[in-house]
């Protein structure tokens, strides 16, 4: 899940300053689940904008705004309203905003801050779990990602900053990823994997940005 948080209303108004006629797009996937860009949040945003004198010319929750095909499909019938707007307020993740800009060609304003790829423990309790590093090594680490959960991205065990299983970053409140990994692999009887030397990561492909995945027919 892509975890997002709504920006403060003041910040949203500041970005919308030059625009009067606003069209709002929400997201039917992640932002709906996380409750930052679903039906209810879009409705509430429209009300708040109206209450400060903005004209909301339309609103829609696109099923998957980051999928160009779905974005086009779900906005087809709303062309005129979008056309007549000064700007689109996007209650989507950053990828959604950029898909909207590219295809609807209107000034597009992010209403959300995109935080991370994570899991939902409860609504209101989200944890980062993947940084889309491009080469998943979870099989070596007992399913615990050291790229995300170790602030130093250590690959060969805990650093000297580990204390009683906790991490020096953030004041010894969070678990040291490498102690979690050690315990998990030990539990699984896989300490051989833990003992193995892990070479430095190859960033050469990651460094060519933005990253693209394009299927080549074989």
């Amino acid at each position: 899940m892509i975890i997002t948080e709504q920006k403060s209303f003041e910040e949203i108004l500041r970005m919308l300053e030059p625009f009067n006629r606003i069209f709002i797009i929400g997201c039917g996937e992640c932002s709906t689940v996380v409750q930052t860009g679903g039906e209810e949040q879009v409705k509430r945003m429209a009300e708040r904008l109206r209450s400060v004198g903005k004209e909301v010319v339309g609103a829609v929750v696109v099923e998957t705004p980051c999928d160009a095909r779905i974005l086009r499909r779900d906005t087809r019938n709303l062309k005129d309203a979008i056309e007549s707007s000064d700007a689109i307020l996007c209650m989507t993740c950053g990828a959604g905003v950029q898909d909207i800009v590219e295809h609807l060609k209107k000034p597009s304003i992010p209403a959300l801050d995109t935080k991370f790829l994570g899991i939902i423990e409860h609504i209101g309790e989200f944890y980062e779990r993947c940084r889309a590093c491009g080469e998943c090594i979870l099989y070596e680490t007992g399913g615990i990602c050291p790229i995300v959960r170790c602030p130093k991205g250590m690959l060969n065990g805990p650093c000297g900053g580990m204390y009683e299983g906790k991490c020096e970053v953030g004041g010894y409140k969070r678990d040291c990823a490498w102690i979690l990994i050690y315990n998990r692999l030990k539990e699984l009887g896989m300490l051989d994997i833990y003992r193995a030397y892990r070479p430095p990561r190859d960033n050469s492909r990651l460094n060519v940005q933005p990253r693209e995945v394009i299927w080549v027919k074989t």
């Binding site: 060969n156 065990g157 204390y163 009683e164 299983g165 490498w178 050690y182 300490l191 833990y194 003992r195």
Partner: peptide, 14 residues
């Protein structure tokens, strides 16, 4: 001083 010490000992070996 590491606690737990086992991961530190493995790191020493590495």
């Amino acid at each position: 001083n590491a606690n737990p010490i086992e991961p530190e000992l493995i790191k020493f070996e590495k």
